[in-house]
């Protein structure tokens, strides 16, 4: 159809990621299913669960980015969630006995780094508040996993206490903003 062209010719087409994502979707599903089948047929340790979780984590972190409120900060929190679950799964299904100590150390280290970044990027601090709160809550949720009464694993306990202190400090400093965030995010009305 002959027409006067009044729109610019686009510079680039970003089709690679889209095609690669489609390819990866099927590759990941097939790889996961094959691993489960082989593991079932060969018996032994349930290594396929770790493979499936790793595939799911890779898919989620590389190909299924959040459409709303994606940021490097929120992505970093997502990374630690998948990582910690992976460590727990390895401990449970492959090589038991170390995760109860390692997980609190990893989480504390991560929380500390995130706190430094959080307070260093002061201007953008409010945007990352929910992500860091989620990280703190995730840490709290894992306390029963690493510690039980009477306390035997003092290393884990010490790191957990340190994480809790960091989290409380963060809540106190950002109390006003956190209250605002909670009000906005738990709003139910559309009025």
């Amino acid at each position: 159809m002959n027409r006067k062209i009044t729109y610019p010719v686009p510079h680039r087409q970003y089709r690679f990621y889209r095609v690669f994502r489609e390819f990866a979707r099927y590759a990941f599903i097939i790889a996961g299913a094959v691993c489960l089948l082989i593991n079932y047929l060969l018996k032994g340790k349930a290594w396929s669960i770790i493979v499936v979780w790793s595939l799911f984590a890779s898919w989620s972190l590389l190909f299924s980015l959040r459409l709303v409120e994606f940021s490097i900060f929120s992505h970093a929190v997502k990374v630690v969630f998948y990582l910690v679950v992976l460590l727990i799964l390895i401990d449970r299904f492959l090589a038991p006995g170390w995760a109860k100590t390692v997980v609190p150390i990893v989480l504390f280290g991560y929380l500390l780094v995130m706190f430094i970044v959080f307070f260093a990027t002061y201007g953008r601090r409010r945007r990352h508040l929910v992500s860091i709160t989620m990280l703190g809550l995730f840490n709290l949720m894992l306390i029963p996993y690493s510690s039980s009464w009477p306390i035997r694993n003092w290393v884990a306990f010490a790191f957990q206490i340190a994480s809790i202190v960091l989290f409380i400090v963060m809540i106190i400093i950002n109390f006003k903003d956190l209250r605002y965030e909670l009000k906005a995010r738990f709003m139910m009305k559309t009025k």
């Binding site: 610019p8 686009p10 510079h11 709303v68 409120e69 906005a184 995010r185 738990f186 709003m187 139910m188």
Partner: peptide
């Protein structure tokens, strides 16, 4: 900007300086 709530998405006003762009892509 659009944000995730627990029950619904919601809008939050910002004070980001808006920027114009020269058109060079598909509308």
């Amino acid at each position: 900007i659009i944000k995730n709530g627990f029950f619904w998405h919601y809008l939050e006003t910002t004070k980001l300086i808006p920027i114009i762009e020269e058109e060079n892509d598909i509308p």
